[in-house]
Amino acid sequence: MENAIEIRGLVKEYKDFKLDSVDLTLPGGCILGLIGENGAGKSTMIKCLLGIIHKNEGSITILGRDADKELADIKEDVGVVLDDVGIPDTFKYKQINAVMKCTYKNWDEAEFEGYMDKFGLPKDKKFKEFSRGMKMKMGIAIALSHKAKLLVLDEATNGLDPVIRDEVTDIFYEFTRDEEHSILISSHIVSDLEKLCDYISFIHKGKVLLNEEKDVLLEEYAILSCAEEDLKELDPEAIRGRKSGKYGVQALVKRDGVPAGMNLSPVTIEELFIFMIKEIA
């Protein structure tokens, strides 16, 4: 099955920031979570992917097609929710539906109305009167109503209360049950990504530190709790991060670099991310 997204050697340079030779692959039918602190380059990468900003170098393939040549056509099959949803403030449901109906060939009015009801979105209110959570829900409803094969979600679960976030997560999960459907999602809420994603990509200061299958990461890495002296005996290559405390030291380690019998506990994606970023810093 073809990859949903292939990014090779992507460079975007600003005065004070550089997205530096990013390689990223989202296999078809999978969910890839993009994790990074504020200003790491997640949104810049997504904007480059969608042609909202121009890249300096590199190639981007979406759903097997060259984004440089066919971007507008590709977007028929891509549902996007950005941090700012980008719907005119004065529009109501009727106007949004009218515009989208003429924009997407596969726009499904009944599905859109279904999501409006499901998310409890009012049809008679202007978009500017919506709360942040409602605006995000509207963005998600639009993205899911035109038979997209790929969803690109930039902080799309921000502003949603935990119950709706859980509901939306289930919808995304349901979406990828069709093996042709894929999702690229960036979020600060790592727990959401941990629950949802098949692949995880860490991005830090414009560089991709890691791009790996989630289960492989969770299998490969562990948290070691021990004394400082015990840690010194380990192969430095096996240690990916450390945190000293009152009662000893906690370290992110590669399981295969640690001798049997040491106190290892499973790692979460959030811990993995924090340890790695702190080690670099």
């Binding site: 969608l50 042609g51 909202i52 971007l71 507008a72 056509d73 590709i74 977007k75 028929e76 891509v78 996007v80 950005l82 700012d84 949803v85 980008g86 719907i87 005119p88 403030d89 004065t90 924009t103 997407y104 978009f127 500017k128 690109v152």
Partner: peptide
């Protein structure tokens, strides 16, 4: 003006339109 305030200028670039259109 309205477009810029509501970020439509970003939203429209996620839709299947070329910049020329």
């Amino acid at each position: 003006n309205q477009e810029v305030q509501s970020k439509w200028h970003l939203g429209v670039l996620t839709m299947p339109y070329t910049r020329t259109q």
